[in-house]
Design a protein around this nucleic acid. Structure first.
Lengths: 168, 168
DNA sequence: TTTATTAAGTCAACATGGCTGACCTTAAAG
DNA sequence: CTTTAAGGTCAGCCATGTTGACTTAATAAA
């Protein structure tokens, strides 16, 4: 196992720091999704189903258009997973009484149960990470990650107050 | 636009905080990958190609086995993208003189150029985020994100000193 | 020196989940 | 009454993950 120095390239400290950030985000996301993926496989679902279940659970009475804005995928891509989730009774749709073109979506009991099972693995991971640090570190984490997000979407991070067209 | 409060579920403060973390990570990763994806499309490549180019560039003379440990995908999945990258002369392979079963991989000039183009968009994003905050926030970001990563892989985050079997 | 293990490669088949493009229905707004 | 908005749908393509089986070459172990 030869000379380590021979492998060092001349990065500026800044570039090294930025690359470490990139790698942290890659590894964190890779592991963050690994546990739900295993649970989803048992149901014949994939990661896309989790995302839909998560954001419908988090934003009761969300519409298709709003969900598309969050996920940033096409309507056709969403349709594939959403249709299956509705057919198998994880998600309910009902017409918005104030604009019957809109379909308000909520989780069914079954959907809530699966959501909880999936998301609890991720919450446990965050809980561990948060407990290994302190309040200031968590606040730093939040501020930096917000800075990574495109400016126009930063408001979404507190979606219960940020998303506007919500109703019952 | 009816009652917002009617939509609030009774989360504990903790659950709310954990869910905000989940969402921050989702949105950050979504946007973090969006710019490279556009560049890759011009070359007929996908996100998987970027990951290979990135980690080969970052770890010159890496072997296939080591790359698989980082990416956590199957050899067959890697083969598809790696074969294409070698065929189109973005990556070089040569036998390790000390163990001729191993193939040491490096970026070609062409590979380095593409790597730089792809990664610079992500470094710019991190640079912006870092500059919007301060040193303590960045350190907090790093510590929390490390906590999210599976313990056995946390050492990888400083890969130039962490990965062992590196040589020239 | 024969045998087992390791590193890498390969073929086939399958599933998920993105995408484009075209087109339809229903309801609301002008 | 026409236009626009919200949602749905069909067909096909592509990228990228998976399992399983099998091969070759080189090193390590018995």
């Amino acid at each position: 196992m030869a000379d380590l120095k021979a492998n060092l390239r001349n990065y500026s400290l800044d570039e090294e720091e930025l690359r470490q950030g990139i790698e942290l985000l890659f590894y964190a996301y890779r592991d963050f999704t690994s546990e739900p993926d295993k649970i989803l496989a048992k149901w014949g679902f994939g990661r896309a189903h989790h995302r839909v279940i998560y954001f419908v659970g988090r934003n009761p009475n969300i519409t298709v258009t709003e969900l598309l804005l969050i996920l940033q995928i096409t309507k056709q891509s969403l349709a594939r997973v959403l249709t299956k989730l509705i057919k198998e009774n994880f998600i309910n749709q009902r017409a918005d009484p104030l604009d019957r073109r809109k379909k308000l979506m909520t989780l069914t009991k079954k959907g809530e149960q699966l959501e909880k099972e999936l998301t609890s693995t991720q919450m446990a991971r965050f809980n561990r990470a948060y407990n290994e640090t302190d309040t200031e570190a968590i606040e730093g984490f939040r501020r930096v990650l917000r800075g990574i997000i495109n400016p126009q979407d930063r408001a979404r991070v507190r979606p219960r107050t940020g998303l506007s067209n919500r109703r019952n």
